[in-house]
Structure formats: structure tokens, C-alpha cells
């Protein structure tokens, strides 16, 4: 089994792959369930076209439960009962409740085999001027590559996917409650359906993992706590108490995580990469045909108002991203309402592009 690494959505795919979750149907069920929940909640708001960007709505809360369920089941464990899960005080860190064979867990997640990328919020925000999103591997990049139990894996994936105000709460429940009220979603309804506590739970877990040296500096590979001490960064106990969200989405610091030049990058955005890459081809054969059917889409607007968009722009030394209609449509589908058919279409594209990648290299 190759070494796996991932950030954001990619971290969940990498972790699920390591755990042995079958992509179809179990992996897709996680995605489809999260998408259905966002659509249901979105119908109750005044912004019916937005899913992922509905203010105050937390995608990581929508996906955490089904993601944990898929991982635990694939490891032969048992899940907490419905009543336990509905109890807000239920302690998910009670690993013994999952009844997972520790040796099996260690075989699926051996030390160093799965690297989940994170962004250190303090390092990111303390830099002035802020690091350009075009730079790669800025000093804020952190990663985890050893895990004690399923909750370590789930927590790392949740924070690796956490962008404040986009995929998770903005500044805590108070702000998001106000936003939800402003957009006609009752606070109590939000509490019942989403809970909005995945970020806090993951934050507590990562704080403990950091203390144990499981979170490492992206550049040095040293435990991040030790690295901070050596670089003179002081953390007060008050900081640690208040700072439940020290880590944000790993893609902020490093969109395309790599171990080395031989790492195959998987990206749903087409472009040119220095590493071998599985990604959509630069021009989809049916692109022109689809554009005429897609008059209200972002891609149509882009084509209408900026006809001279360059094909690519330099993202970082290891990649140039494609500014084409296919990518515009992909981004639109990811942040706006996506029905099951669209999501399965994305699944099929990933499968087909991988088949093409393997065929071109004689690897099938």
C-alpha cells in the first residue's frame, strides 16, 4: 500500500482509503448524505441556491457522523447507539466503545503511512504581510502522520477540512446563531440538526495530539510544539484554553500536498503539475456543447465577460492551474447546489481520468 497524504476533502478520502472503506457505495454515501443535509437546510433559508456557503452552516458537522461511521465499520467496530449519538454530552473519545482491534488499527494506520495536512492559524495570521496563496508550503503547514485511535483520524480530517465561515462555524456559536437568524434559520433548529460542535471536539483532540507531539512542522518534521519552542514562539496556558481552533484547512497552507517528486497528485482541478497527476483533461470533449445549455452558470458568465481568460496561471513552482470552463463548472458544482446526479458525474470523471492515467503509463 503506498503512502497516502491529503488535505481538506482529500484528507477524508486518504483516511477512508487507509481504513479500507469501499469507495462505492460507502465512500459515496458519506458525500451524498452530507450533500442531502446541506440541501435540506438550504431549502429553509433565504439563500436557496447556496449549500456550502450558507452563512453559519457547518459542512464538517454534516459529514462528521457519517464519516466516523464509515471508518468504524470498515475496522469491524461497533458504533454508539442512536440515543448515545443524540446526547450532546456523549464522549466520542471513549475508544473502547467502538470495540476495534488495536492491532488491526495499527496495521491500517501504521506510523508514517497517512499524512493529513493542516494549517496553523496562528502561524498563518502572525505573518505580515500574509503569505501569498500562490506560495507553496508556507511556514504554517503542519501535518499528522501517526494516530492513536479512530478519533485522532476523524479529528485531523475535520480540521483539515475546516475553513471558518465556509465549511464550519465562523467565530463560534454566537455569531453563527445570529447569522442563521438573519437568514431565517432558527437557532434551535440548527442545534437539533447540525449541533455545530465538530470543530470544538476536533480542536480538543488536536490540542491533546499536539501536546503528545503527534502534530508536526511541515518543513522540519519535528513535533510542532517542540518546533515552536525552538523558534521562540511562546504559548500561554490561556492561549491553549481559548484556542480550540488552532488548526484550519490544510489546503490553505498547501493545496497540493506531496511527500516527494514521485507523489501522484490527485486534483479535481485541471492544470499542469510538476508531479505525475490524476486530474481532468484541460478540455472536456463535450464542453462547448454543454455551455449552451448552461446559461445561468458561472462558466457562462466567465465566458461572456472575460473571453480572453488565459488557459493557465502559475499557482506555485509545482503547478499551473487551468482557468477554463471545466474548472469553473467544477468549482460551481462544489459550492452551489449539487444534486446526486452531478455528484455521481464527478465520481465517474475521477474514475475515468484515473483509468486514462493508468492506461497511458501501461499500469493497468
Amino acid at each position: 500500500v503506498p503512502l497516502l497524504t491529503g488535505v481538506s476533502a482529500g484528507s477524508m478520502i486518504a483516511a477512508a482509503t487507509a481504513a479500507g472503506v469501499a469507495p462505492e457505495p460507502d465512500g459515496m454515501d458519506v458525500v451524498l448524505t452530507a450533500a442531502r443535509r446541506t440541501r435540506e437546510l438550504s431549502k429553509k433559508s433565504l439563500l436557496p441556491t447556496f449549500d456550502a456557503l450558507t452563512p453559519g452552516y457547518s459542512l464538517i458537522d454534516a459529514v462528521e457522523g457519517t464519516f466516523r461511521e464509515a471508518i468504524v465499520k470498515s475496522l469491524g467496530g461497533t458504533l454508539p447507539s442512536q440515543s448515545q449519538q443524540q446526547n450532546r454530552d456523549y464522549d466520542y473519545t471513549l475508544e473502547s466503545l467502538y470495540d476495534i482491534d488495536p492491532q488491526l488499527f495499527q496495521r491500517r494506520f501504521p506510523m508514517g503511512s497517512l499524512r493529513i495536512g493542516l494549517t496553523d492559524k496562528r502561524a498563518l495570521l502572525s505573518t505580515f504581510p500574509p503569505p501569498s496563496p500562490l506560495s507553496s508550503l508556507p511556514t504554517a503547514y503542519r501535518y499528522v502522520d501517526s494516530y492513536r485511535n479512530v478519533e485522532d483520524v476523524v479529528a485531523a480530517c475535520m480540521l483539515s477540512s475546516y475553513i471558518p465561515g465556509v465549511t464550519g462555524p465562523l467565530l463560534g456559536d454566537n455569531i453563527s446563531d445570529k447569522l442563521l437568524e438573519a437568514f431565517n434559520i432558527g437557532g434551535s433548529e440548527k442545534d437539533e440538526e447540525a449541533g455545530n460542535d465538530a470543530m470544538k471536539r476536533a480542536g480538543r483532540q488536536l490540542r491533546e495530539m499536539t501536546r503528545l507531539g503527534l502534530v508536526k512542522d511541515g518543513k522540519t518534521g519535528l513535533p510542532s510544539a517542540q518546533s515552536e519552542t525552538e523558534t521562540g514562539i511562546e504559548r500561554s496556558s490561556q492561549d491553549e484554553e481559548d484556542d480550540s481552533t488552532q488548526y484550519w484547512d490544510g489546503g490553505i497552507a498547501d493545496v497540493f500536498p506531496t511527500f516527494d517528486d514521485n507523489t501522484i497528485i490527485v486534483s479535481p482541478i485541471s492544470g499542469m503539475y510538476s508531479n505525475p497527476t490524476i486530474c481532468p483533461s484541460m478540455q472536456q470533449p463535450n464542453e462547448v456543447e454543454n455551455q449552451s445549455l448552461d446559461n445561468s452558470s458561472v462558466s457562462y458568465l466567465l465566458r461572456s465577460y472575460v473571453p480572453s481568460l488565459p488557459a493557465t496561471f502559475r499557482h506555485c513552482p509545482k503547478s499551473s492551474l487551468g482557468l477554463n470552463m471545466g474548472n469553473a463548472r467544477a468549482v460551481k458544482d462544489m459550492i452551489l447546489s449539487s444534486d446526486d446526479e452531478q455528484l455521481y458525474q464527478r465520481f465517474k470523471e475521477g474514475y475515468d481520468d484515473t483509468t486514462r492515467f493508468l492506461n497511458e503509463r501501461g499500469l493497468t
Partner: peptide, 30 residues
């Protein structure tokens, strides 16, 4: 086998799931 890095670029990572499915089918992933 080379290492494999799944990028961010979107929370609804169905594309990644499709890639994972194909690699699994061809024995690249366990």
C-alpha cells in the same frame, strides 16, 4: 509504489472518491 496525495479543492470530493475506486480496482490501493 509511489505515494498518492489527495488535494483539497472542494469539500464535496466525489472526484477523489472516483479516483480512489479506480486505483483500488487496479490493486494500487488496499
Amino acid at each position: 509504489l509511489p505515494s498518492i496525495g489527495f488535494s483539497g479543492a472542494g469539500f464535496l470530493g466525489c472526484y477523489h472518491v472516483g479516483v480512489s475506486a479506480c486505483l483500488q480496482r487496479h490493486g494500487w490501493l488496499g
